[in-house]
């Protein structure tokens, strides 16, 4: 086993590409070290990306925000500009684990861990976030929902690293929100979760909407029909009821130690309704 600390993304990609045995990328380590401790992976190579220039930065660009892959969620939560523009993404990121875990975990790691229950991912998917992927054959930018392909599996090829997550600049009258259901008040993995991102027209009617569900299927679900039902509405009771029904119907959950199929279906609808109301209010809707 080797531990390396490259200073450039090219070096990191190069080392990962030529690794013979299993290799792991270390940013916050809050998933990786747990899996190593449990004996689920024994990497031959650990690539610590935290000293790579720029990966620890949040930058505001003309298009929006670029959040480096090594930015801990606690740091993200302290960034006023991102918090103002994307409160739903930030609140989701800040729900991962404890304060202790917040000091380490990253939204990129949360995405690449590819858990269907990852807290930040439904919010990122609803937000239409993109991932910048660096690899042996150059860089590409992809929608975050295309990264996880199943529990613990991603579309990333050997040698590829996500170096940043991109969030768009916000127009007027926009709001997003995230809610999850957990049995306790903290420290649990989401039993089911929902993220909603809305923009409103000048009359307060919903212009665009994206709804994503977590822990409801093998990957985070972007429920397009749920977004469509919101468009044009001012979130009246009938629309909320339809939203809940569509979200419950879209779920393809499992029975496990955290919840039942029936529970996840029902609560997905409840959360979608509640979270849409929060996003709507944040967008300035009344």
């Amino acid at each position: 086993m080797r531990y390396i600390r490259p200073l450039s993304i090219e070096d990191a990609v190069g080392e990962l590409a030529k690794a013979v045995g299993p290799a792991a990328i270390l940013a916050g380590g809050s998933d990786l070290l747990v899996r190593m401790k449990g004996g689920f992976i024994e990497p031959e190579l650990i690539v610590d990306i935290k000293r790579i220039d720029g990966l620890g930065d949040i930058t505001e660009t003309a298009e929006g925000f670029r959040i480096g892959a090594a930015v801990p969620c606690a740091v993200l939560g302290e960034n006023k500009a991102v918090r103002k523009a994307w409160p739903g993404v930030v609140e989701a990121a800040n729900l991962i684990g404890s304060k202790q875990v917040q000091g380490r975990c990253t939204i990129t790691g949360n995405l690449c861990n590819a858990s269907p229950a990852a807290d930040s991912v439904p919010a990122l998917v609803a937000a239409g976030a993109k991932a910048v992927v660096a690899g042996p054959s150059g860089k590409r930018t992809i929608a975050v929902e295309t990264v996880p392909t199943g529990p613990g599996r991603t579309s990333l090829a050997k040698g590829e690293i996500i170096e940043a997550i991109l969030l768009d600049k916000r127009p007027e009258h926009a709001g997003d929100a995230y809610l999850r259901f957990i049995p306790r008040t903290e420290m649990d993995i989401a039993v089911v979760s929902a993220g909603v991102n809305l923009t409103l027209d000048e009359h307060g009617a919903i212009k665009t909407a994206r709804v994503a569900l977590g822990a409801a299927a093998p990957t985070v679900l972007l429920v397009e029909e749920a977004g469509q039902v919101l468009v044009g509405s001012k979130l009246d009771e009938a629309t909320l009821e339809r939203l809940a029904k569509i979200c419950s119907g879209a779920c393809r959950p499992i029975d496990d130690k955290r919840g039942t199929i029936e529970f996840r279906r029902k609560v997905a609808g409840v959360l979608a309704r509640r979270v849409a109301a929060i996003a709507y209010k944040r967008a300035g809707g009344k």
Binding site: R184, E186, M187, I189, K257
Partner: peptide
């Protein structure tokens, strides 16, 4: 046993 850890054997936390 499916929940042999403090993540899924859920003892009360301070905020509970």
């Amino acid at each position: 046993l499916q929940n042999a850890g403090f993540l899924d054997y859920r003892i009360p936390v301070c905020s509970d």
